[in-house]
Structure formats: C-alpha cells, structure tokens
C-alpha cells in the first residue's frame, strides 16, 4: 500500500466557515497547588492551518492539548473554541464542540474489545448514524491509511504503527475542522513517521486544521512554512515558520 494510491482517493471536505477555531487569552494552568505549568498562554488557530506544538519533554504540550479538548479547565484566562467561550459551555455544547475536532492520543486509546473497523467507525456511530450510511466510507478510509486488510481484527493484533494509523483514521472519520495529535510519530520508525506526516498534510489540504504536538525537530523540518508553537519555561512562543 503506497501513499500515492492513498492520496488519489482522498475525500474532499466541504467549505469551512471562516473564524478562529481556537483562541487562548492569557491562559494559566496549575495542577493542584504547585506552580503554574502554563503561564499567560495566548494564541489562535485559524481554519485549515497547519502548526506544530513543540518544546522539550515536560514543558506542557499534552497539557495544552488537554485544555483544547476540554479535558482540563484553565486556572485562569479565556479559551474559546469555534467562536464560543468554553467557560459558558453546558454538556450538549461540549458534545457538539467535540464532534468538530478529532483527537489522536499519544497512547492511541483504541477500544480493545472492538475491531479496527468498529473503532474507526465509532465517532459516526455515537452520533447516531446507521451503519449502512457509513460502512463504505469507513472502509474507504481504512484502505486509505493502509488498514484495509486489518479491518476485522482487534487492536491487540496491530503493531504500534498500525494502531497509530487506526487512531488517526478514527480522528479523521467524522471530517473534523480541527485535528489534535499528541506525539503521533513518537512510537514509530522514521520512515513511517514521514508517511504519517504526509497523511496529516493531505488531511490539511482537504480542509482540516492540524495541530501536532511533537518534540521531534527533524519531523518539523520536513514541513516548510509550518507555524511552530514553542513551549519553554511555562510560556508559549510563536515562530511563524515562514523564514
């Protein structure tokens, strides 16, 4: 399975409304009672943009992603998602925001008792869609990430790289406006890392804004012009990447 074949069958996404997908204003986060892990973090993510979130291990990349995916509430500051202030969010609002983003967890978080196909189809299933309406779509996506032959096995049978691709497919299946990926190349060899990165680039071309958290400098060097959000010393610095 080559990526060329993959690219040719890439689905095209509908037109996206303009407006920031994510906005942080002076966000601070403290775990428990210690010092702040993140201090005065301000940035925005535009639709269809591509950026890396980087910084040494332990600088707070995962923490920042968890703030975006609403797994954590900021200790102070304001976070807006898709133009909505998240401090005002009720449960239904939270659910509908989450349906607009796809998440690739560092540890995949595939459900062990489901097959690859069922795992990848899950975001559509939980939205109440009938299986008949998405079966072909999911199969196509699985072929696209090179898991067409492993559709009906459980994650226990998959290698690290295959799990990685399954979790990317799951994040992508509902055609999210924003994709968050936490160290998506952390567990794979460099050649697979390159292939996965090209997957993200393709997704971005078809309309999804991408935020990849990584501490792998060589990975970032493969994408010219990608913006870099750099965490260091609890603060976020933005390198435009166009120089």
């Amino acid at each position: 399975m080559t990526l060329k074949k993959v690219e040719s069958s890439l689905p095209t996404f509908a037109h996206r409304p303009l407006g920031e997908l994510v906005r942080f204003e002076n966000v601070g986060l403290r775990y428990g009672v210690g010092a702040e892990t993140l201090t005065d973090v301000s940035f925005a993510i535009e639709p269809q943009s591509f950026q890396f979130l980087t910084g040494a291990s332990g600088t707070g990349k995962t923490t920042l992603l968890r703030l975006i995916m609403q797994a954590l509430k900021p200790t102070r500051g304001m976070i807006a998602l898709f133009g909505q202030d998240t401090s005002q969010l009720d449960k239904e609002g939270l659910t509908s925001l989450r349906r607009r983003m796809g998440i690739v967890f560092q540890d995949f978080r595939l459900l062990d008792h489901l097959t690859t196909y069922e795992n990848v189809a899950l975001p559509l299933k939980v939205q109440g869609r009938e299986e008949a309406t998405y079966r072909a779509e999911v199969s196509e996506l699985l072929n696209w990430v090179g898991l067409g032959d492993l559709m009906h096995v459980t994650p226990a049978v998959l290698s690290g790289g295959e799990k990685q691709r399954a979790s990317i497919a799951r994040a992508l299946v509902a055609q999210p406006e924003l994709l968050l990926a936490d160290e998506p190349t952390g567990n794979v060899d460099p050649s697979l890392a390159r292939r996965l990165l090209r997957l993200f680039v393709e997704m971005n071309r078809s309309g999804t804004a991408i935020l990849i958290a990584t501490h792998d400098l060589s990975l970032m060097d493969q994408i010219d012009g990608a913006r870099r959000l750099v965490l260091a010393d609890r603060r976020l610095h933005i390198e435009s990447g166009h120089d």
Partner: peptide, 16 residues
C-alpha cells in the same frame, strides 16, 4: 472509566 472517557472525547453524549 477509560472507555467512557474516550467515548466522550470522540463526541458521544451521556444519552448514548
């Protein structure tokens, strides 16, 4: 617990 958390993240509501 883990599964419920994942389900929430991928857009499942409490009703589901």
């Amino acid at each position: 617990r883990e599964i419920i958390e994942v389900l929430h993240f991928i857009g499942a509501d409490d009703r589901y």
